[in-house]
């Protein structure tokens, strides 16, 4: 991590979390919100894909389109609030907030304009989703920002560039006028040092490749990469030499048999074969992980790791992951 980005950190207020599907980006977004909510800070975490992933992680009832307090942060607890952004509600709210349309707003709904805008019209959906996040990030309460930080559980890496760049796309169709103005100011925030995009990955080839592709794309769009977060990291169960031996199928069977006897385990051939197979698979996976880790380290960006949790993630685990994120010193 370079000094320049370190200096950015205190400025980072909008944390956009993306990653390949299945790597656990919602979990990381929730843990990050908790990590940022220490020492009295107030944090908002938003989801945009209607999956109610946050509600199940924080163990609360499904979230409405309203900011709800869902957890208390660690260390003199700050607060985590959560919001599931609904496009139609966001559009009506937006129209009301900026245009005070009143009766005309209802007429728009009757004419199917709201439905059209949120389902058919290009980019409008994404602008509305980001627009709401933008509003929450900029919102003031009693002369200071309403939230110290906002975390966005964003769409997966395959879509993240389009999602975040959509304001530019809109700026392309709406050359003047109010939508253009709104799009421009959102883009200004997204490309400012206040906004960081964090990419979640596992140490497998495809997720790492998508992470590298996403990093290129973010750079092209002028968006800042925060950290690469390696999720579900397993620690090797075997010493380095044994890993090398296991990979080549050269573990010392005699020694294993003797130790099993010592441990009081009846060491028949199938047990030993099973153990050797477990060792070999493990060694192969560790080797793949080392290779993928090297690709990430070559980037020269901050890489943060979170441990593998075998039994899925409950609220208690979320606090532990949050502690790991804080201990990394990157947030």
């Amino acid at each position: 991590m370079t000094l320049a980005t370190r200096r950015d950190q205190p400025l980072a207020r909008l944390h956009i979390v993306s990653g390949k599907g299945g790597t656990g980006k919602t979990t990381v977004a929730a843990a990050l919100a908790l990590a940022l909510a220490s020492e009295g800070k107030k944090v908002l975490v938003c989801e945009v894909e209607g999956r109610q992933g946050l509600a199940s992680l924080f163990d609360v009832a499904p979230l409405p389109y309203a900011e709800r307090r869902v957890a208390v942060g660690p260390d003199n607890g700050g607060e985590v609030h959560a919001l599931a952004i609904d496009t139609e509600a966001a559009l009506l709210e937006y129209l009301d907030m900026f245009y005070r349309l009143g009766r005309a707003g209802k007429a728009l709904d009757r004419f199917g304009v709201i439905d059209f805008a949120t389902t058919v019209a290009p980019g409008v959906r994404d602008v509305l989703l980001i627009g709401k996040v933008f509003e929450a990030t900029q919102r003031q309460a009693a002369g200071r920002p309403a939230y110290d930080a906002v975390v966005l559980d964003a769409p997966p890496t395959g879509r993240i560039g389009k999602f975040l760049n959509v304001n530019t796309e809109v700026a392309g169709i709406a050359k003047v006028g109010p939508i253009r103005k709104q799009a421009t100011s959102i883009m200004r925030l997204l490309t400012s040092p206040q906004a960081h995009v964090h990419l979640v990955t596992s140490l497998e080839e495809m997720p790492v490749q998508e992470t590298l592709d996403a990093i290129d794309e973010l750079a092209r769009l002028g968006l800042r990469l925060g950290s690469v977060i390696v999720n579900r990291m397993r620690t090797p169960e075997l010493p380095a030499q044994a890993l090398a031996d296991a990979a080549r199928g050269r573990l010392d069977e005699g020694r294993i048999e003797a130790s099993l006897k010592e441990a009081g385990i009846k060491a028949d051939a199938s047990v030993i074969a099973g153990l050797l197979d477990a060792g070999q698979q493990h060694a192969e996976r560790v080797a793949l992980e080392v290779e993928q880790r090297r690709r990430l380290d070559d980037l020269g960006s901050a890489v943060v790791t979170l441990p593998y949790l075998a039994d899925g993630v409950d609220l208690g685990d979320l606090y532990e992951l949050a502690a790991d994120l804080r201990a990394s010193g990157e947030f």
Binding site: E237, L238, P239, A242, I256, G264, L275
Partner: peptide, 20 residues
């Protein structure tokens, strides 16, 4: 239980038992 009993005597077999 076996891994526990080995108590670090043989880290390789201990590791294999845990993996299993």
């Amino acid at each position: 239980a076996g891994a526990e009993r080995l108590n670090g005597d043989d880290p390789v077999t201990t590791g294999l038992l845990r993996l299993h």
